[in-house]
Simulated assay, not measured.
Amino acid sequence: MDTPITIGISACLTGRKVRYDGGHTRDPYLMETLARFVEFLPVCPEAECGLGVPREPMRLVGDPAKPRLITIQSKIDLTERMESWCQKRVHELETENLCGFIFKSRSPTSGMERVKVYSESSTGAPQHKGVGLFARAFMDHFPLLPVEDEGRLHDPALRENFITRIFVLRRWREAAAHQRLGSLIEFHTRHKLLLFSHSETHYRALGRFVAQAKQYPAEALFADYEKGLMTALACKPTVKKQVNVLLHLMGYFKKVLSPAEKAELLELIDQYHREYVPLLVPLTLLNHYVRKYNEAYLAGQYYLQPHPVELKLRNHV
């Protein structure tokens, strides 16, 4: 890629000592593995809006749909101060060309889901229904950007889906930079099977949209395609969806594979379907056949390698 992939991240996850107690929560996978392929832009809402390090801890209080940010001991209401900073910060981030954001889980400012919200009376168990003030402002302002928290990224399927989306978005922005119809068609063609693995419904809708592309003004065409693209990729691939794509790929070799080769490939696809082996196993054999039989169309499909192999994202069962 011509330009780096820039990802926003809660600063404490990078090892910066910005937490309320002066510590950090550095994430080894993010900083030692993913950081080899992306550039992180650290953000700490509390420190950046001037609350200092260390500082009094705070929590969300009241209505989970619109909670207040209150310090625990002194009961100081920091809601307006934080919300004002959030609005300013998300507008500043428009210039950073972000391809996604990784939030700190459970944080009253940066948690993207299931943040504790306490009642006004401080009695009873908290509700796990809140969203951190900055995370909410960011997701409202950038509704199409991929977002996750470091806790959810411990799930291999969620991790792969998030990282797939950031790499696709980076490629899309490069393809869309000059708003040429040919670039859009080429991008869509090379991502067809990847889209198919996320959502057959969106894949077919985007196909019809591209077929009618000349009917749309360029600006609307590219904006609407990006919306459809990111909406499709937000649908998580399942084993069943992946098996459908694998069988579709196999169809390209029906005239060249021997009965024994077909049986071997079907066996591997079945083992993946039963979750005995990872997706990487049947894909490795299919990639071999793509090279062996010089299947040009499949060689151009990002489905076969949507992200760097070093990330080992298709090695899980």
Rank of each mutant, 00 (worst) to 15 (best):
I70F: 07
R291N: 08
T109S: 15
L98Q: 07
Y297W: 13
I269T: 00
R190F: 09
V277G: 02
L51T: 07
S119T: 14
M230E: 03
E267R: 03
T33Y: 15
A35W: 14
K240D: 14
N294F: 11
M112I: 15
A299F: 14
I5V: 11
E83F: 13
L206M: 10
G22F: 13
F40R: 01
G15Q: 07
D270M: 05
L13W: 13
L206T: 04
E310S: 09
M31W: 09
D27E: 15
L233E: 06
V90G: 00
E148K: 07
L41K: 08
A260L: 10
C44M: 02
V277W: 03
L283V: 02
A260T: 07
V117E: 03
S121F: 15
A263W: 09
A157I: 15
Y203E: 00
E148S: 09
R26N: 04
C12F: 08
A137P: 11
S183D: 15
E295F: 05
P126G: 03
E148C: 05
R159D: 01
N294V: 12
G130D: 12
A260Q: 06
P308G: 10
K17R: 15
A296F: 11
R59C: 10
I185Q: 04
D21L: 10
E200F: 12
I9V: 15
R159P: 07
T109G: 01
L229P: 07
S110N: 09
S197P: 15
T231I: 06
F167N: 00
M82G: 05
N287G: 00
R180M: 06
R59A: 09
D270K: 07
L51C: 04
R159F: 12
V53E: 02
V43F: 11
L246G: 01
R68K: 13
L283Q: 05
A218T: 09
G182H: 13
F196M: 08
L144E: 14
G251E: 07
V43E: 06
G111F: 14
L229E: 00
P146L: 03
A263I: 03
M139P: 11
L193Y: 15
L311E: 08
F222R: 03
R314Q: 10
I9K: 07
L60V: 08
D155R: 02
T3R: 14
L265I: 05
P28T: 11
E261C: 06
F37K: 02
H154D: 12
G207C: 06
H24F: 12
E56S: 05
R208A: 00
V147K: 05
K292W: 07
L169K: 03
R36K: 14
S107C: 09
E120P: 08
K66V: 07
Y293N: 05
L169H: 04
L298G: 06
A177T: 12
T25C: 12
A176V: 02
V53R: 00
L311A: 09
V210M: 01
P45L: 02
S84M: 13
E295A: 02
G132W: 06
L153C: 13
L229H: 04
Q212S: 11
A205G: 01
W172Y: 13
V53K: 02
Q301T: 09
C86D: 04
K227C: 10
C86N: 08
L41Q: 08
